[in-house]
Amino acid sequence: MLKILKYSFTDLMRSRWSYIYFLFYLTLGFVLFFLNTDLTKAVITLMNIIIVLTPLIGTIFGVMYYYSSREFTELLLAQPVKRHTIFAGQYLGVSLSLSLSLVVGVGLPFVLYGIFASAAIWDFATLLMIGAFLTFIFVALAFNMALFFNDKIKGFGAAIILWLFMAVIYDGIFLLSLMLFNDYPLDKLALGATMFNPIDLSRILILLKLDISALLGYTGAVFKDFFGNPLGMVVSLSLLGVWVALPVMLMLRQSSKKDF
């Protein structure tokens, strides 16, 4: 698996788009930390961008990588290599290279800013970890879509719709239901609804970490109330872990049943 991972990783590291992605974060990091005096504000801005952008980029890169390397995958499938090895290797290659772009891209300005001396290091580390988690989750979801649809356009469309749903529509439906059922106790529903969306979950995790109640919103407030701060962190973090594990398992299952 390590060999496949290595090749997928180097393949992506040589792609122009990886550099654009990396440079984007690098620029963003520098702008936010050197033109902004309030570090917490910078982290929040960064959070808002990372929480929407990493899933989107993970989705796009995941789908594109799968379809563009399909012929090569077929070549690998005819070799004495296990199917799980091939797909797990490619998946990790894509996820790791994207995570690296994020961590190094945002990390570099932070290090230059002198973050190690600052108290915000843990907030910042949480943010990067969440970004990596979201990348792993959405690349896995994208691979699932690509494996499911042989047609590139359909696969791409389905993956983007999934991202749009998680990033935008989900919240909309959620808010709407809160307004409609205003008279009922909705704490449990809100709590449950959050767990089914990794983007919401990530937002709460970071906001709990930053301890900014004003930005928590209804869901976050309920979450904090229900779990208390440290427990809320542990629960949301392990839920993110589940969000990685389930799509990866589904992807491997799909890959072992598919005809190529």
Binding site: D11, S68, E71, F72, E74, L75, A78
Partner: peptide, 10 residues
């Protein structure tokens, strides 16, 4: 294989 398509950038 029938169709010889490989990753283009290597």
């Amino acid at each position: 294989p029938q169709i010889a398509n490989f990753p283009g950038n290597i």
